[in-house]
């Protein structure tokens, strides 16, 4: 027998599981949704021909970032929900866990595979969105220069500056990172639910509920605090609710970005850390539920 010293944590094993999960998802053709995203952007561009350039850029950003958020969230839920049930149904999980693979590595590998897929998807969508934004900006720039040909240089400069400010701004990038972290959080939560769910349909239905509750809970919380005051009991209860149903509205910075409001670095860092903490906590919950599960 090959003398292999067993290590309780191996990045090599996790990388193997990650790569395999990613291949599985790619070969299931989940990337088809990118085609829908592209069609949505193209359709949107046709509609925008009738708007002013400020409105056009605003709608383009609104639609693109909104679609990115919905598509990555949906992809995170649907792709993750089927991973464990499929391995259990096909008994491939037996062959993997009968190897010297700790269960936490199996879960980390599965989640990392989904996160890799989400990362590449969001990169592709961002590239498409930013390319479209750049092309429209260049086209409008030429038009503006043509239209302002007889004006004074200061007026031309002002028109160009106004156009540039309406198009790309650096706030888009942290906004896209937050969209990714929200999808990561949803993937980790889906993985946790799938460790005890009876089917992937059950997991998806529960996650859809959580998704909506997660977006509405901030409003409900404010209403509750107004009605019942902010005692420690109410705060504990609300903290538990926030753990079960993550406040997804916190990850919704699209409106500010579209409006051109700068995201303060502090808020970005806070939201990013919150996303990472939620993802880690749900992954830990998944391990607690899965480590003693009879397979």
């Amino acid at each position: 027998m090959a003398e292999l010293q067993h290590r309780s944590f191996s990045l090599g094993r996790i990388a193997a599981l990650t790569g395999n999960t990613f291949t599985e998802l790619v070969r299931l053709k989940v990337f088809y949704f990118l085609l829908i995203f592209a069609l949505l952007l193209i359709g949107n561009s046709l509609f925008m021909a009738r708007l002013s350039f400020q409105q056009e850029f605003q709608v383009l950003k609104d639609v693109s970032l909104g679609a990115m958020s919905i598509f990555t969230s949906l992809l995170a839920i649907v792709a993750t929900a089927q991973l464990l049930p499929r391995d259990l149904e096909d008994r491939t999980i037996y062959t993997i866990l009968a190897k010297p693979v700790p269960r936490y590595e199996y879960l980390i590998g599965k989640l990392a595979g989904v996160l890799l897929l989400l990362g590449l998807s969001i990169l592709a969508m961002s590239a498409l969105f930013l390319a479209l934004l750049f092309v429209r900006e260049q086209m409008l720039m030429s038009e503006t220069l043509r239209e302002t040909a007889g004006l004074r240089p200061e007026q031309v400069q002002a028109a160009i500056r106004s156009l540039e400010e309406s198009a790309f701004n650096a706030n888009l990038l942290p906004g896209i990172v937050i969209i990714y972290l929200k999808a990561a959080l949803l993937a980790a939560l889906t993985l946790f639910i799938s460790t005890f769910a009876s089917s992937n349909i059950f997991t998806i239905v529960v996650m859809v509920f959580i998704y909506f509750i997660g977006h509405l809970q901030a409003t409900a919380r404010e209403y509750w605090l107004q009605e019942h005051g902010g005692g420690w009991l109410a705060k504990t209860f609300l903290a538990l609710v926030a753990l079960a149903f993550p406040d997804l509205q916190l990850f919704n910075l699209v409106d500010d970005i579209v409006a051109g409001t700068a995201i303060p670095p502090g808020l970005f860092a806070q939201t990013a850390v919150l996303g990472c903490v939620y993802t880690s906590v749900y992954l830990f919950f998944a391990w607690v539920s899965f480590h003693g599960k009879a397979l």
Partner: peptide, 8 residues
């Protein structure tokens, strides 16, 4: 794939 899980 299974070999990598075993450290090969």
């Amino acid at each position: 794939f299974y070999g990598k899980l075993c450290g090969l």
